[in-house]
Amino acid sequence: MNKVVVLLSIFLSFGAVAEVVKTYYESGALKTQENHKDGQQDGDTLTYYESGKLKSEHQYKGGKQHGMQWEYYENGKRKLVQSMKHGIAEGLRKTYYSSGALYSHSKLKNGRVEGLFLNFYKSGAIEQKIDYKNGQQDGVAELFYESGAIKGKIKYKKGLQVGTAKLFYESGGLEEKFEYVDGKLHGKQLAYFESGALKTEQNFVNGEASGLLLSYFESGALETRVNAVNGLQQGSFFQYYESGAIKIEQTVVDGKVEGVAKQYFESGAIQLEGNFSDGTLNGLHREFYESGAIKVTKSYSKGVLEGLVKGYFESGALKGETNYVNGEAHGVSKVYNEKGVLIIRENYVNGKLAGSWHRDK
């Protein structure tokens, strides 16, 4: 428990009472030291880390923070400098990295940021420049790489993003381009490879994805294609190899995979096939060799393995089988060589090996 001790009580002129109040960590180390006047904080309030290092210096008047406020990291480096007026932030505010380097610089008016707000990298290079009016972002916010190259430009009006926003590669090439109306994405969203080739294109209406989402390989070949309605993917989803061959095909309902999903080798042969319900694997799941032979069969119940998992050699011979209960191996697990001879037999209980037998070589 922290101890609270009134160390000094002095009757001042006109009956005012001044007190120094201290609290302690359970270890006995000093935690806070407050100056009080007539029962309210008045003057300096100091807080300490348990190590004894100064944590903060706050100035009070009539029970409210008034004057300069300082906070420190335990290593002694300054963390915050803030000016307060009758309990409200007013004037300069600076924050720092634990190294002592400046992190942010701003001015406040009636508790709200006003004018230019700056963020810095540890090196001292500017990371962000943002204009504020009445506590809201207003104007063009600029983002920078540590090298000084422009990283992005985003326009704000009364705290909301408006117009065209752009993000750039450090080399100067356009990386992404967005359109905003009253703080919501509205219109075309485009992303580019550093080479300038189109990477993705997506349309938004009132902040929600609407219409086709297309992504491309840098060569220009189509990589994915899916439709969106009211912000959720809907209908057929296709992913392609750069050659144009289908890699994945599945159906999406309200943003979740539903029904049978298939994955293919680039040759066109089936590689995986599984059933989904409400976005999770549910039912039979099969994996194949490129020759078409079955490689693995297993079943899921709401995304959890249930029942026998069987693996096969490409010849069709059984390679192994393990039973699963609620996603954990449970019961006998067997492994065979390609001649059908049992070479390993293990017993599991709730996912933990409880015993094993290995055929001698």
Score class of each variant (00 low, 15 high):
residue 5 V to D: 07
residue 19 E to H: 09
residue 21 V to N: 04
residue 21 V to S: 01
residue 22 K to N: 15
residue 23 T to K: 02
residue 33 Q to G: 01
residue 34 E to S: 09
residue 40 Q to G: 02
residue 45 T to W: 11
residue 47 T to P: 00
residue 51 S to E: 04
residue 59 Q to N: 15
residue 60 Y to S: 01
residue 64 K to L: 10
residue 65 Q to N: 08
residue 66 H to W: 07
residue 74 E to N: 13
residue 75 N to D: 13
residue 85 K to M: 03
residue 85 K to W: 02
residue 86 H to Q: 06
residue 95 T to W: 02
residue 101 A to G: 07
residue 107 K to P: 00
residue 109 K to S: 13
residue 116 L to S: 11
residue 128 Q to C: 13
residue 131 D to P: 14
residue 135 G to N: 07
residue 139 G to A: 11
residue 139 G to S: 09
residue 140 V to H: 01
residue 141 A to Q: 14
residue 146 E to A: 10
residue 148 G to K: 14
residue 149 A to F: 09
residue 155 K to R: 15
residue 156 Y to C: 04
residue 159 G to N: 04
residue 164 T to C: 10
residue 172 G to V: 04
residue 173 G to I: 02
residue 185 L to S: 13
residue 186 H to E: 11
residue 193 F to L: 08
residue 196 G to H: 06
residue 197 A to R: 00
residue 199 K to G: 03
residue 207 G to M: 11
residue 207 G to P: 14
residue 208 E to K: 13
residue 220 G to S: 05
residue 226 V to P: 04
residue 231 G to A: 05
residue 238 F to Y: 15
residue 242 E to W: 11
residue 242 E to G: 08
residue 251 T to K: 08
residue 254 D to V: 00
residue 260 V to R: 10
residue 266 E to Y: 02
residue 271 Q to N: 12
residue 275 N to Q: 15
residue 280 T to E: 12
residue 282 N to M: 08
residue 287 E to A: 14
residue 290 E to H: 05
residue 294 I to G: 10
residue 299 S to I: 05
residue 308 L to C: 04
residue 310 K to H: 00
residue 313 F to C: 09
residue 315 S to H: 12
residue 316 G to E: 04
residue 330 H to S: 13
residue 334 K to A: 05
residue 339 K to Y: 11
residue 350 N to W: 01
residue 350 N to K: 12
residue 351 G to V: 06
residue 351 G to R: 07
residue 353 L to M: 05
